[in-house]
Design a binder for these strands. Sequence first.
DNA 1: GTTTGTGAAAGATTTCACAGCG
DNA 2: CGCTGTGAAATCTTTCACAAAC
Lengths: 226, 226
Amino acid sequence: MRKRAVEISDQTTARLSVYLRCLTALEKEGIQYTSSRGLAERLQLNSAQIRKDLACFGEFGIRGVGYAVRDLRGQILRILGLTRDLGIIVVGAGRLGTALADYPGFQGESVRIVSLVDVDRAKIGQRTAGGVPIRSLEKLPEIARKTGAEIAILAVPRSAAQEVADRVVRSGIKAILNFTPVPVVVPAYVKVNHVDLTREIEGLAFFLRQLATARKAGTEARAASR
Amino acid sequence: MRKRAVEISDQTTARLSVYLRCLTALEKEGIQYTSSRGLAERLQLNSAQIRKDLACFGEFGIRGVGYAVRDLRGQILRILGLTRDLGIIVVGAGRLGTALADYPGFQGESVRIVSLVDVDRAKIGQRTAGGVPIRSLEKLPEIARKTGAEIAILAVPRSAAQEVADRVVRSGIKAILNFTPVPVVVPAYVKVNHVDLTREIEGLAFFLRQLATARKAGTEARAASR
DNA sequence: GTTTGTGAAAGATTTCACAGCG
DNA sequence: CGCTGTGAAATCTTTCACAAAC
């Protein structure tokens, strides 16, 4: 069962999340069995990819039949570490931080926002519209310790990003979701996932420029061939 | 100069964004020249990677010297299509949509939020705290046409995601930044970048579970060796 | 019959290492 | 001399294709 000889790639992990969501939907639809082909068609990817991803963690299928939806979903929940409670602290009670703290997508499935912290005295002691208490950034180590929160979401201004990341690390948190535009530097034992809005928008800008260039080239080619 | 024989990968595009941000910082620091090694050290990646990425688009360096910061920055701006104005429409005036519409990271550098649209009659006609006008979703095609906006940010509830994506596509927009947890399906000529918060959090959960497992295994091994 | 799990092949990406230029 | 630009090598990822299992 323990097949952790090879390191699991981030891409595989990301796809496990996708499989999980798909299985949750299938279960809700009352479907009891599926196959790597069935999943692959729904998710627009190769069926061998799905089998390979799952093979990193064990054998979950029945040959000639496929996978039991409920069972496979449970396995992936376990693999991803979602069977125990996971506490999240949002750092930065600005518009984005507040919106993230109240984000309904986080509710349920063992993940919960335990607190929102900020340096602004006017906000400390209040609660978000969704009921998340706002506390002092100073209290971060204490809150982390008492609640057992293991994930921090960084939603502070760029100028504060690195310093706040350092505080988060010092408070013992080892997993960070970074919403600032700064690629914060942390020790190797801490994992940072960077949600970089600038990069996303610039990726779309590049796509649009390519479209525009291709169209122009096409027009010119057509004009030239006349 | 035109070397578009090979398709440019998303990974290369994402790194161009990173190079751009780094060059902007260097320029602000008053540094005039840098090298692939200098950039690589700052960005924690391989210098050949940077040279290969740039080689897709031309030759921008000076052998024996490196790159002129200002010039290379201008080249990347051009490559990414950031030299002309890019309008963004945010769809969904909930907490997240409003926060994104006012997000300061988007301001400047040719990118601007032109409007926020929603179906909620109570919100239509208002403005966000940052001054972005809220208009009716019905007006989306008209707003897109009049403002020339080319990018839509989806920040609607999951139940509305696919239907709203269809409307966005019908209004002529070909680039979407999807903040919903739904992997929306669109025609092949439309590009969607999916910011999937669930996937990000689950990636961190997996990392934490691995940490916990490794620590436990280590403890057991130590106990066994006594 | 069908579908899994998996070696082997193909493809993509990253890194090395060096010729050639400034 | 130092650094770019780039083939070749190494590495990583995806896909193929089929034996084994139900």
